[in-house]
Amino acid sequence: MKNELIKPKGLVTNTNRRNFLKFGTMSVAGAGLLLMGCNDDDDMMPPMSEGVNLGSGDIGILNYAYALEQLEAAFYATVLTGGYFANANAEEKTIMGDLEKHERAHREFFKAALGSAAIADLEVDFSSIDFNSRTSVLAAAKTFEDLGVAAYNGAGQFIENVDYLVIAGKIVSVEARHAAAIRDLINPGSDDFAGDDLIDANGLERTLNFTDVLTAASTYVKTPIDFSQLPS
């Protein structure tokens, strides 16, 4: 069953953000990612038996990035084991090999930087991707890379520490380089590398908020992700 992210509008503006998880609804949560508020409940939040909580502030944003990098790294690691990669031409082998290393490096960097605040490993679900199919792999790669760019672009404004902001900036442009290359593999020599589907009349690339990004990602992630404490 496809995961659903439910984030009632206005919830995050409630005064008591820490105690918003209502475990009385876990039967519903079993269907996927569920976020419910209970701003009138001052009891300590019970530990999550499954799922991860990204946390708040800059740590929350870094965990958000870490979650996306985990997803990308796991994807490319799987690509390298599949039939598409085995039969790919030299250029595409090089690109996929590079992307696997870059995303693994990003993932490990965030894990180290976050230390004890890092979320646990996410359980991924790539059952919708055919790793023997070039079309399927490249389409998924395009989704992940474009999503990553839009996620970093959308999250930047919430980062408080300038050093973290610059590090995110160092990574997002590489994700954009990836995205352009993947799009050019799909439609060579076209202007899709920076297509009108992403870039508006002001020449600005799309940004996505936390809900949009994690909803899109939830197709590929089994672990429930609680992002309710992220800044807004």
Binding site: G156, G169, V172, S173, A176, A180, A194, G203
Partner: peptide, 10 residues
């Protein structure tokens, strides 16, 4: 940031 990533795509 939204210009920056476009330049990177270019």
């Amino acid at each position: 940031l939204s210009i920056h990533s476009v330049e990177a795509r270019h």
